[in-house]
């Protein structure tokens, strides 16, 4: 703990800029072990958010799994806006008996809209199975290596990615416009 605190202190001194985010516990551990990444601002409940390149997602996820993050609570995706990046997020936590506010961390992988491909974490956390399929279904993010990547909630022949911000619902009109 003391070492980590010291390291955080020195980092903050070096940066000397209020806008740069201080590395949290998980982030420092990763940096110590040679996993380069970028820390984003902590979220509102104080959970660390780490930005990971898609090439390094699997080594990162494996390292975090070995570090004790054994539970993938929530895999989600979101769209940063029309023309912007798509994001695949992974909310991890350390699940144990009688836990009391265990460590949590969220990984974010930013993917270009034209080529939204990211490796699947199914082989590390089986919990990703349907959650990744849902993200594929709603955002068209291709999870490479997923054993059964096909539409989950929408029809198999559905065209388009419904939760993207530039999606236009087919055959939709306001009832008041029909007369």
């Amino acid at each position: 703990m003391a070492e980590e605190a010291k390291q955080e202190g020195t980092q903050a001194e070096e940066q000397g800029d209020a806008k740069i985010v201080e590395a949290g516990k998980v982030s420092s551990w990763l940096t110590e072990n040679g996993f380069e990444h970028e820390s984003l601002e902590k979220d509102h409940s104080g959970v660390e958010v780490l930005k990971v390149d898609r090439e390094f997602l699997l080594p990162f996820a494996t390292a975090l799994y070995a570090y004790g993050f054994n539970y993938l609570a929530c895999q989600a995706a979101y769209d940063t806006g029309p023309g912007g990046d798509l994001v695949s997020t992974y909310h991890l936590l350390k699940l144990s008996d009688n836990a009391d506010r265990p460590d949590e961390v969220r990984l974010k992988v930013f993917l270009p809209r034209e080529d939204p491909k990211v490796p699947s974490v199914y082989w590390i956390w089986k919990a990703a199975d349907w959650q990744e399929r849902e993200s594929y279904d709603m955002y068209g993010i291709v999870y490479e290596g997923h054993p059964n990547l096909k539409r989950l909630l929408m029809n198999e022949d559905w065209v388009g990615w419904p939760l993207r911000k530039d999606y236009i619902s087919p055959d939709f009109y306001e009832l008041q416009d029909a007369y």
Binding site: L95, D97, N98, A99, R101, P102, A127, Q131
Partner: peptide, 27 residues
């Protein structure tokens, strides 16, 4: 181990020997 890895929760998880309840965990 499988229950945790598959992301089970609630009674499914607790019936597999994990003492994990968010009412206690998150307060």
């Amino acid at each position: 181990e499988d229950a945790i890895n598959w992301g089970l929760s609630g009674p499914m998880l607790r019936a597999s020997g994990v003492k994990w309840d968010l009412r206690k965990v998150d307060h």
